[in-house]
């Protein structure tokens, strides 16, 4: 455990130096998510301001609550996409040779990929997360059962995101087609996970496809807790599903690391060594 904590600290410093190596990072951390949020809000407004919206989607009848709905989507997407980005950066360590050094060390591989994702996540999302919290407070749109639900919301974003990051890291460090995976996890992820639409608007096949993405489950919990005032009891099913999915992602990450490293040690290919 102590060693794991030290790896977390080490990765946090590494990510901090990488992410904040340039001051332009504020663009990807805050400006891009805000611009995307503005665009999706204005694009959906013509649909929300229609007669009978209160029956079809009560939340959208209030423009501020529609904005809050989309803001939770943007926040969740920022969490999960920042891990896609950090996994993408992790693949560059293969070219610089530092990946080999990670594998030369006795550090537990799973701890390294989890710590790497966690470090990237914290560095990348804090600004937009603070902004979102400030926005929610300012517009007073949150309806929360009790204060403890904020902790539930935070964990429902953090835990699945870290598991997701660990899986992506494990897959990408052994993959040569990282660029393609990166493209595949950008737009399809927000589309299938219900970032910009409520899940009832998605057709069944798309909901099924989206259910394997942890972002989908995270958003259900976050929106249920923040916008609909649901408590832990009401969200128990969703929370359990999210926990199971996170565990599956982590176990898959472990398997991917074992298989990937064994294969790399056998073939010397995969560009790793």
């Amino acid at each position: 455990m102590r060693h794991a904590a030290r790896i977390f600290r080490a990765e946090a410093l590494k990510q901090h130096r990488r992410v904040f190596g340039s001051k332009l990072v504020v663009f990807s951390m805050l400006i891009w998510p805000l611009l995307t949020l503005a665009q999706s809000y204005y694009t959906l407004r013509p649909l929300a301001a229609t007669p009978g919206i209160a029956e079809r989607w009560p939340l959208a009848a209030d423009p501020e609550r529609l904005l809050a709905f989309l803001a939770t989507g943007a926040l969740g997407f920022t969490f999960f996409f920042s891990l896609v980005q950090s996994a993408w950066h992790f693949t560059f360590e293969r070219q610089t040779g530092t990946l080999e050094l990670l594998f030369l060390s006795p550090a537990n591989r799973l701890v390294v990929v989890v710590a790497n994702g966690f470090g990237a996540l914290v560095q990348n999302v804090w600004l937009f997360a603070c902004f979102a919290v400030a926005g929610f407070t300012l517009f007073d749109v949150a309806r929360v059962a009790h204060l403890g639900m904020y902790a539930v919301v935070f964990l429902a974003l953090l835990v699945p995101a870290v598991a997701w990051g660990a899986l992506l890291n494990s897959l990408l460090i052994f993959s040569r087609d990282a660029a393609f995976l990166y493209t595949l996890l950008d737009d399809p992820m927000w589309f299938a996970a219900g970032v910009r639409l409520p899940t009832f608007a998605l057709p069944g096949w798309l909901r099924a496809a989206g259910s394997v993405l942890p972002l989908t489950g995270s958003l259900v919990v976050v929106r249920g807790a923040l916008l609909d005032g649901r408590g832990v009891g009401e969200l128990a099913g969703e929370l359990a599903a999210l926990a199971v999915l996170s565990a599956v992602l982590l176990l898959t990450a472990v398997a991917a690391l074992r298989l990937g490293e064994a294969r790399a040690r056998r073939t010397g290919q995969l560009g790793l060594f």
């Binding site: 959906l44 079809r56 589309f191 639409l197 608007a201």
Partner: peptide, 20 residues
Amino acid sequence: VFTMGVAYLGLRAIAGDQVS
């Protein structure tokens, strides 16, 4: 594709095929 997809699904499910 997904921008149009969101518009299409939203128009059907949220707006009931109307627009403001």
